Computed example of a mutant assay.
Amino acid sequence: MDKIAVLVPCYNESKTVKKVVEDFRRALPEAVVYVYDNNSTDGTAALALEAGAVVRHEYQQGKGNVIRRMFREIEAEVYIMVDGDDTYPAEAAPEMVRKVVEEQADMVVGDRLSSTYYTENKRPFHNFGNSFVKNCINRFFDTNIQDIMTGYRAFSYQFVKTFPVLSRGFEIETEMSIHAADKHMQVDHVVIEYRDRPEGSVSKLNTFSDGLKVLSRILSLYKNYKPLAFFSLLSGILAALSVVFLIPILVEYWQTGLVPRFPTLIVCGFVLIAALQSLFAGLVLQSMEQKNKQDFEMRLIQAKESFERIRAEEKKETIE
């Protein structure tokens, strides 16, 4: 088991990957830097190897797929995840590690938005998107994470080994934040100085298509993690629509004793039934989600026991 593992997912980052590896080896001499190449065609893997990284490959395209592979394969006491685009300072890594080791944080967020992100980032829609996503998640999940979509984070062993990676692309950071908030994990922050990509380095993130994926992922996770709130809202909307169209029919019936719009009445009845079904679905799924949270706590205990067992075996081997 490594003491510290630096995880660098890369796709065509030949302009910056060598500097990123060298910076983190200098900032964290005791760490092992892992670069997972995601089908790069510009020699990224060779440059990372030359800089002293352990290079591995993930052939399913997408950042989420790379993170899934990393989390499965690497055993470490502390994990640092960072992009290979040289936008995050390695100098902040020791403090992030300290918060995991000494303050028992499950996830430490490298907070760009509280420092230089809005001035350094040259893509205005990215600025709006980051703020919008942050406000949505903090409101929906009653948390206070300062930077939801940052690619610079530190994790404990328990977080990494119990986090179910479902996203395939850039939605992965949003998924991590929501998972930590929903499971009441300890999230700390380190304010970092963000710098924009150097000249010649091109972002793989598409503002609109990836932004829509992130918003879709937030809605999906809200449904999964907060089913009662989601389906109650849906039930309320359906019930309101039904009542709006039903009131004129009832008023006319009370005044004349006639119901001239039977199709509308029938549709309103079915919509009301759908509203009730949605409410009961939310109640059932909320009970299932509560059971999932209980099971997750047991998985955390198992991960902790696994961590202690591995460390004990390593100590035994060292003594022998």
Rank of each mutant, 00 (worst) to 15 (best):
E13Y: 01
N127Q: 10
R197K: 02
E13C: 04
S115R: 06
E102V: 15
D196R: 02
N138Y: 03
E75R: 04
N65C: 11
Y88M: 07
V165N: 01
L285K: 07
E314V: 01
Q186E: 13
K315C: 10
I266S: 13
V271G: 02
Q255W: 03
M81P: 00
V82Q: 04
V66I: 15
I249Y: 02
S306T: 08
G200Q: 04
E199S: 09
A312H: 06
F125K: 07
S115K: 03
P94H: 01
R311C: 11
S306C: 07
V35R: 01
E252R: 12
E103P: 10
K315T: 15
F231D: 14
L166Q: 12
M70S: 10
G52Q: 08
A45L: 03
Y11S: 11
G169W: 06
E297L: 15
L241F: 13
K134M: 15
G84V: 14
T207V: 15
I178K: 00
P164H: 01
L219I: 08
K19L: 04
V35F: 07
M70Q: 06
E77S: 11
S201G: 08
T207K: 00
V243Y: 02
F141K: 13
Q104P: 09
A275F: 02
D210R: 00
E317L: 15
E30V: 09
C136P: 14
E313P: 10
I137N: 05
V21T: 05
A27D: 12
G269I: 15
Y34A: 09
V35C: 11
I218T: 03
V33D: 02
R68H: 08
V21R: 00
I319M: 08
T116P: 15
F132M: 01
P263D: 14
S287A: 13
M185P: 02
Y194L: 04
F307A: 02
A275K: 01
A51G: 02
V244N: 05
L205S: 09
C268H: 04
E173N: 10
L205D: 06
K304F: 05
V82S: 04
S216E: 08
L113K: 04
E77A: 11
A181I: 11
L285G: 00
F170N: 12
I148Q: 10
F270S: 15
Q294I: 09
V21N: 00
L272A: 14
N135S: 12
M96D: 09
R72S: 13
Q104H: 15
D23E: 12
A312W: 01
C268Y: 06
G52N: 05
D42G: 12
I178V: 06
